[in-house]
Design a protein around this nucleic acid. Structure first.
Lengths: 213, 213
DNA sequence: AGATCTATAGTCGATATCGACTAGACGAGA
DNA sequence: TCTCGTCTAGTCGATATCGACTATAGATCT
């Protein structure tokens, strides 16, 4: 990740996006991102922010415009976007929108090694996931709808909508997967059970009953 | 997330999963993961692998069983999973399956700042994305189907299926988004156009004014 | 008046992570 | 036989990234 773009953390994109509008100091970037809910789509950490601002300055994509000190507070440096920064921002943005990139999710990693757990336990865990996803999806949907009713145009909700759509797809798929495990129609159930011989003797009803173990 | 688990890279989960089956040396872990296609769901990098193996050893989750040297080749250290490692692996796996975590995607970051590009350009980029997603989805679907026909049970394809389902959902959603931008029905189009006054001459509001670009 | 809480505005040290590089073994072709 | 490419099996240095911590100002409670 460290070579294609010299500063590759998406937070750097957000910094440039903000400075594309107007000069700001780092703390103001954080508040602005929070106000606009951008911290929902870009991971925002103070410590990363300051390193990233440094890196962007090193690469001459942004530059300090003025440094002010109020009282005994720490200095605040206001940054602006350079011409190179504008170009980098727009180019990166075009790439992000135009080219899908492979993303590795935590859940995919979990699914890959699911056979290490007994089927009944996996099903129980996935059911818990379904419950939590239902809540999350419900919450997201009402927040999006509320924002829309408050007059926020859809253009500014696309990233939230995108996340919602993906979570809904996951939810639907996991529901079906659980069903296939529970009713034994998932291809590979025999192999799966055979990985867990200690449970072979138990009857289906008992497997995965409690959180025992 | 870097603190909850002392070794938090999902590749560490993969390492423990492999050692859960049998002892191996690091390079063997790589080949095994490649053979089984696990590198599609867990990001696999040599350099990360060796650091992670070190970290896992430091935490006593794995331990070296023997060190062999063949000819003048570098040493190969075979590792095994400790009891603590087993527990860590299973606990982590349960957590990954049972609890959805927020994932920040590159595309979401891009969408967040889409208004910085003019509508027509954004639409063009998203159309390109649609084309590439169609190809990707097609390829993934045929690989999954081919594997299934070769007798690989669905159990071992769940992570691929999951990825496929998410990509399909994205595809459908982006298609609709492009349509809404193209036909002007996306909420916020007026604001969006007003961010790009250099193009206003082509817009409805400016028609008849005769201004040059 | 003093104590406590919260918002402001960061710094710092420890790890994590990655791309680039190294280097021997071995088979295929010229 | 020489050389080229590929497989095996890693190492290394430079950044990136994060959680924990610091410190002041102003507001609120008591």
């Amino acid at each position: 990740m460290a070579s294609k773009r010299k500063v590759s953390n998406p937070l750097a994109l957000a910094v440039m996006a903000l400075l594309f509008e107007r000069p700001m100091h780092p703390y103001e970037m954080v508040s602005t991102m929070r106000e606009r809910g951008k911290h929902e789509s870009v991971r925002l950490r103070y410590s990363s922010l300051y390193s990233i601002v440094e890196a962007l300055e090193r690469e001459a994509l942004i530059l300090p415009l003025e440094t002010r000190r109020e009282g005994r507070r720490p200095e605040r440096t206001v940054y602006g976007l350079t011409e190179a920064g504008r170009a980098e921002f727009l180019g990166w943005l075009r790439e992000l929108l135009g080219e899908p990139v492979k993303e590795y999710t935590q859940f995919a990693a979990g699914l890959s090694f699911m056979p290490a757990l007994p089927p009944a336990e996996a099903a129980t865990l996935l059911e818990e996931r379904v419950r939590m996803l239902e809540e999350e999806v419900g919450g997201m949907r009402s927040r999006v709808e509320a924002a829309a009713e408050q007059g926020l145009p859809r253009l500014f909700l696309v990233e939230a909508e995108h996340e919602l759509v993906l979570r809904e797809a996951e939810l639907t798929w996991v529901r079906e997967l659980v069903r296939a495990i529970r009713d034994g129609t998932l291809g590979g159930m025999l192999e799966w059970r055979s990985f867990h011989p200690e449970l072979e003797a138990m009857d289906v009803e008992q497997q995965g009953k409690g959180g025992d173990v």
